[in-house]
């Protein structure tokens, strides 16, 4: 099972990716749409495929992989199945950056204004966390710093909404924060991809250290794991991935929490094996959810983040119930 898991998940992602390309309000036939995508000879159809559906499907893969991998890395580092990528406050701060851009009107200035503001928010969060958590501290100080930064970002976001003189800006902010992949372009893909790839690379190099942490921080340190460097790389890797994902898609919850949790038993619970599995699993889940929002309420623009939370929360409750039944 463990050996077949990655191929099965990859096939699932490939299938869902194709489905994501073929499903949409334009009502193109599958053959026409693929022909238009590859050959680019039909103006309208090619435009729909290349400018709307392809970036949307690519972003679903990128964002899902980022959230899944970052969640697995956070859980492995903190040795806690309840950890999630937002724990270090990066997603909240990225959202605050985006909210400020929307509120001030800077978001309308040019295409990248909003995602770049969100990335700036993520960078501020990382600096604050590293400053608060100190150079030598363990995982506890990191959690506390993350909670403090999250709370501050949340409070400032509420303040912006509270003082917003413009109800249209306020509702735009609220909708943005729900998370969505609608109306994203290839430019968004190109903006997010390098950060997500870099973060993934950083986190995947820490797989062995996360395995060693299974035995606790002291035993891991005695086995040659440099705890301070691991924590720094973890924060930078998670922040790079989650900051970029939030910048292009808004806040999408529960993916980083649920995906590692579901896949853990299937990889024999090894943190290193869970990293790639969760990346692919996260891509599958976000693709699935993004297809679902198009099928369930095509006219109402159901937000992706709302759906993942709606599906993720009961799934998580079920998992907690199962864990309790096993007496763990």
């Amino acid at each position: 099972m463990t050996r077949l898991l990655l191929p099965i998940l990859s096939l699932l992602v490939a299938g869902l990716f194709a489905a994501s390309l073929l499903i949409g309000p334009a009502g193109l036939s599958p053959v026409d749409s693929l022909a238009a995508l590859i050959r680019g000879d039909r103006l309208a159809e090619t435009l729909v495929m290349r400018e709307i559906r392809l970036p949307r499907a690519l972003l679903a893969v990128l964002v899902g992989a980022a959230l899944g991998l970052a969640g697995a890395a956070m859980q492995g580092y903190l040795r806690n199945p309840l950890a999630e990528p937002g724990l270090i406050g990066v997603s909240g701060s990225a959202a605050l950056g985006a909210v400020l851009a929307l509120q001030t009107g800077f978001a309308g200035a040019y295409l990248f204004a909003l995602p770049l503001s969100a990335l700036a928010g993520a960078v501020v969060a990382v600096l604050l966390i590293l400053m608060l958590a100190g150079a030598r501290g363990g995982s506890i100080t990191l959690i506390l710093a993350g909670i403090a930064v999250s709370a501050l970002a949340g409070a400032l976001t509420s303040l912006v909404l509270n003082l917003s003189p413009n109800p249209f800006a306020a509702s735009e902010i609220v909708f943005w924060m729900m998370g969505s992949l609608v109306d994203r372009s290839m430019d968004h893909v190109l903006l997010a991809a390098p950060f997500i790839a870099l973060g993934a690379l950083v986190l995947l190099t820490q797989a062995r250290a996360l395995d060693a942490l299974t035995l606790g921080e002291d035993a891991a340190a005695s086995m040659g794991v440099h705890l301070a460097r691991l924590r720094l790389l973890l924060v930078l890797g998670v922040a790079s991935m989650v900051g970029a994902a939030t910048a292009v898609a808004g806040a999408i919850g529960f993916v980083g929490l649920v995906v590692p949790h579901v896949l853990r038993p299937l990889v024999g619970a090894r943190p290193s094996a869970l990293l790639p599995a969760s990346a692919i699993g996260g891509a599958a889940l976000v693709l699935m959810a993004d297809i679902a929002v198009r099928l369930i309420l095509p006219e109402r623009d159901l937000k992706l983040g709302v759906l993942t939370a709606l599906v993720g929360a009961p799934l998580f409750l079920h998992l907690i119930y199962k864990t309790r039944a096993q007496g763990l």
Binding site: A212, T214, M223, P265, G268, A269
Partner: peptide, 21 residues
């Protein structure tokens, strides 16, 4: 270490193999 920590439900074989890291 004195604190006996096993963070994840891995098999005994997997856990002992960590000593080879």
């Amino acid at each position: 270490p004195q604190a006996r920590e096993i963070a994840w439900p891995v098999t005994v074989d997997t856990l002992i193999a960590l000593g080879r890291l």
